Amino acid sequence: MEEIDVIQSSESKEEEQRVWSWGAGTDGQLGTGCLQDELSPQLLHLPFSISTLACGGAHVLALTSCGRVFSWGRGTSGQLGRGDMVNSSYPKPISFFDGYSVTQLSAGWSHSGFVSDSGCLFTCGDGSFGQLGHGDYSSHCSPVKVSYFTNNNVQQIACGMRHSLVLLKDCLGNQVYGFGSGKRGQLGISKDKIRSVSLPQVTNGFEDVEIVGISANGDHSASLSANGHLYTWGKGFNKTSNSYIPQCLSSSLCFSKTALGWNHTLLLTGDGEVFMLGGSNHGVLSDPEKMSPAKPLSENSNEAALEKVSGLDDTKVVQIAAGAEHSALVTDNGIIMTWGWGEHGQLGLGNTSDQTKPKAVSLDDEVQSNDASFQVYCGSGFTYAIRTLSLPSQT
């Protein structure tokens, strides 16, 4: 669900955009108006152009190129931010943000987070574990400003299943905060087990590290440093021990992006190679035969094996995404590939089978252009793809 990377819309050119969705759709999360699963990509007809998308447990948030915020899908916890607790099968605007400029957003299992251009943080949805950061365990059906960060500059919000992370930029540099459920160590605030906290607390271990991106999904947390190192904390991969303090992955590779699932994480290098930690469930691991025992990382924790995703020889990857237990990527020539759990059709391959290796998705799109860019996003059991075609400016 969460990828450490923020997509900026183009302002110098006009754009033509096409959007597809597929997979689990019984809560309206596909935006098609139909409450059913779709095994193949469905072309949507949206009245707006998407700048960035966030897919959660069964809801979607969209930031448009004009700065408006839309939501759809499951809304029974208030996660759609529209003042009610009902589902929506079509995108509708969040009117609360009509007077704001939102720059980044994140969708968790049943809560949502939004960051404004002034560095303010707003959250809504399920707050029963303190994951909204308001100092209580209440839920909210409209966005509420997180007062703890009133005098700070929030850069990013990452929403997991029952916890949230915040990347803050202040005079001390970049700091990471956590709040919500912490029983697996996913807050990174103490070496002791913590059930939950409802006010943001500083995540330990980053005192001398410049963090540029954060991610959360399931009971996992992750961050990338400016020098390309991956840090993970929370639930261990492949039955390794939970990490209550961020652990740096012992690898000589330099990573540019990461995407977290419930039991795995994808990693993308600057050279376009994709690696994976964990993910033996539902064929998420690209090659189960290569699974190797965890290697000791320190006295108090261990580390799952890092494996290169197979079946991508001579293929350069430019983007990665992870759902609960499925994965997706985009190659440099605009091909979208998926693998992993396929029960709801979230792989877009026309069936409900699991796949252990990346397989190309057909979008029924005839446009071939060097000016076309593709993005892929994964929710817990559904997937979105966006093709944006840059057009010559009208003069």
Results as ranks from 00 to 15, higher is better:
Ser198Leu: 08
Gly182Glu: 07
Arg195Asp: 15
Leu187Phe: 04
Ala216Asp: 03
Leu168Gln: 03
Val209Phe: 01
Ile194Thr: 09
Leu172Ala: 14
Phe179Thr: 01
Gly188Leu: 04
Glu210Pro: 03
Ser196Ala: 11
Asn174His: 15
Cys159Gln: 03
Ser147Glu: 15
Ser138Glu: 13
Lys145Trp: 07
Cys159Ala: 09
His220Asp: 07
Asp219Val: 01
Ile194Pro: 02
Asn174Gln: 14
Thr203Ser: 14
His220Ser: 10
Thr150Asn: 14
Gln186Arg: 03
Val176Met: 09
Asn151Ile: 05
Pro200Phe: 01
Phe206Pro: 05
Val209Gly: 02
Arg184Asn: 14
Leu199Gly: 11
Ala216His: 04
Glu210Asn: 13
Glu210Asp: 14
Lys191Arg: 14
Tyr177Ser: 05
Lys191Gln: 12
Leu165Tyr: 00
Ser138His: 11
Pro200His: 07
Arg195Ser: 14
Ala158Lys: 04
Lys169Gln: 13
Ile189Leu: 06
Lys145Thr: 09
Leu187Arg: 00
Gly180His: 03
Phe179Lys: 02
Glu207Asp: 15
Leu167Glu: 08
Val197Thr: 11
Ser215His: 01
Asn152Thr: 09
Val212Lys: 10
Val144Asn: 06
Leu167Arg: 10
Gly218Ala: 04
Gly178Phe: 00
Val176Ser: 08
Arg184Ser: 12
Asn152Asp: 15
Cys141Glu: 09
Ile214Arg: 06
Thr150Lys: 14
Gln186Lys: 00
Ile157Thr: 04
Met161Asp: 03
Val166Asp: 03
Gln186Ser: 06
Thr203Pro: 06
Gly178Ser: 07
Asp219Ser: 12
Leu172Val: 11
Asp219Glu: 13
Ile214Leu: 10
Glu207Trp: 08
Ser215Tyr: 00
Lys193Asp: 12
Cys171Leu: 12
Val202Ala: 10
Gly173Val: 11
Asp219Ala: 11
Asp192Val: 07
Ser139Asn: 06
Val154Glu: 03
Val202Glu: 10
Gln186Met: 06
Leu168Ile: 07
Ile211Tyr: 07
Gly213His: 06
Gln155Ile: 13
Lys193Ile: 12
Ser138Met: 11
Asn204Lys: 15
Asn204Trp: 02
Val144Asp: 03
His140Pro: 07
Gln155Glu: 13
Asp208Lys: 14
Cys159His: 00
Gly185Trp: 00
Asn204Glu: 12
Val146Arg: 02
Phe206Val: 07
